[in-house]
Structure formats: structure tokens, C-alpha cells
Amino acid sequence: MSGELPDEAKTAVNAALDAENAAVWTYELVTAFVTRSQVQAAVAEATGVHEGHRDEVQRLISATGATPPAAAPAYSLPDRVTDEGSAIRALVVAERECAIGWRAVLENTAPGEVDPAVRRLALTALTTAATRATRWRITIGQDPAAEAQPGKP
């Protein structure tokens, strides 16, 4: 991708990157609280996916000649994480924040206005975040498990 992003797109892409950084941080935090092997495997897989999205958006930002914003040293969670259930609830929030960020990228870019790779990444990341949030909600028995409009604030 070359050239500058329009201001609205740049703001949305930077927010999506921040959400991905927060998700990586949250997934790494919850590893201390998940005990079931199936949940541990899902956490490890999701961490890798979020790291991949983070790395890709950093590359896309760099390709515009801009410097990607750095990750914060820590992120706030809405609730204290003390066990596997609260850890999974934190993951639902992280996935929802990613979905919000990536939906904003789609809403603030238009085909032909930005490199198609930006919109492909946004659609892929929104879809995986919404799917993963649904799986986590199912894991903790939250009803409804799926959001009607993923990423809508």
C-alpha cells in the first residue's frame, strides 16, 4: 500500500491496531487463569491470530509512510480477572473491541480509496473476532451467544 490514508481511515486503522494490541495483551494475561486444555489451546490459537492481524496492520500503516502507534504497556479491563470464567468474559470484551475497530475501518474506507488489502484485513478480522466472541460466549453459557450486528458500538 502506498500513499496516505484519508483522515477518517487513518483514525479507524489506528483504533483497530490499538484493539489488536489490547487483545494480544488480554489473551496473554488470561493464560494464567485458564485451566482446561481445550480452552488453553483456543487461547493460544487466538493469540496467534491477533498477533498476525496486529503485524499485518502495522505493515499496512508503515507502507503509507506513517509510523504505527506503539502498544500500551498495559490495558484496562472492565472487570477483575480471577478465574477461568472471568478470563473468558475478558476475552469476549477484547473480541468485541476488535470487531468494533475493524467495522469502523470498513465504514471509513471505500473500495478504490484505499489499498484493497486494508479492507480485506478489516473484513477478515471483523469476521474472526465476531466468530470467536460467539464461541467464548457459548463456552461460558452467555445468552444470546451471537451479536445481531457484530462490531456495532
Rank of each mutant, 00 (worst) to 15 (best):
R80W: 14
L126T: 03
L91G: 09
V105T: 01
R119W: 05
V81T: 11
A129Y: 06
A99P: 05
A94D: 02
V93S: 05
L121A: 03
A133F: 05
E97W: 07
V118F: 11
E97R: 03
P116A: 00
R96V: 13
R103G: 12
A90T: 05
A87M: 02
E84V: 01
R89Q: 08
D83Q: 03
A125N: 05
A110D: 12
D115W: 02
T124Y: 12
V81Q: 08
A122C: 03
V118N: 10
G85R: 14
A99H: 10
A125F: 07
P116Q: 00
T109H: 07
A110V: 12
L126G: 07
R80Y: 13
A87W: 02
T134I: 10
R120W: 13
P78V: 15
A117Y: 15
A99R: 04
T127G: 12
P116E: 02
A130W: 05
S86V: 14
W102T: 09
E113I: 10
V114C: 06
R96T: 14
A104N: 06
R120T: 09
T109G: 06
P111M: 08
L77M: 09
R132I: 05
V92H: 03
E84A: 07
L126W: 12
V93A: 08
V105Q: 00
E84C: 03
I88F: 01
T131P: 08
E84H: 05
V92R: 01
E113S: 15
R120E: 08
D79N: 15
E113Y: 15
A87D: 05
T131N: 10
L106R: 02
E97D: 11
V118P: 04
A129I: 03
A99N: 10
R119K: 01
A94Y: 00
R119C: 04
L106P: 06
P78R: 15
V93I: 11
E95V: 03
V105L: 01
L123W: 15
T82L: 15
D115Y: 03
E113Q: 15
T131G: 08
T124G: 12
L106G: 13
L91M: 01
I100M: 11
V81G: 12
E97C: 14
V93T: 08
G101Y: 00
A104G: 07
D115N: 03
V92I: 06
I88C: 01
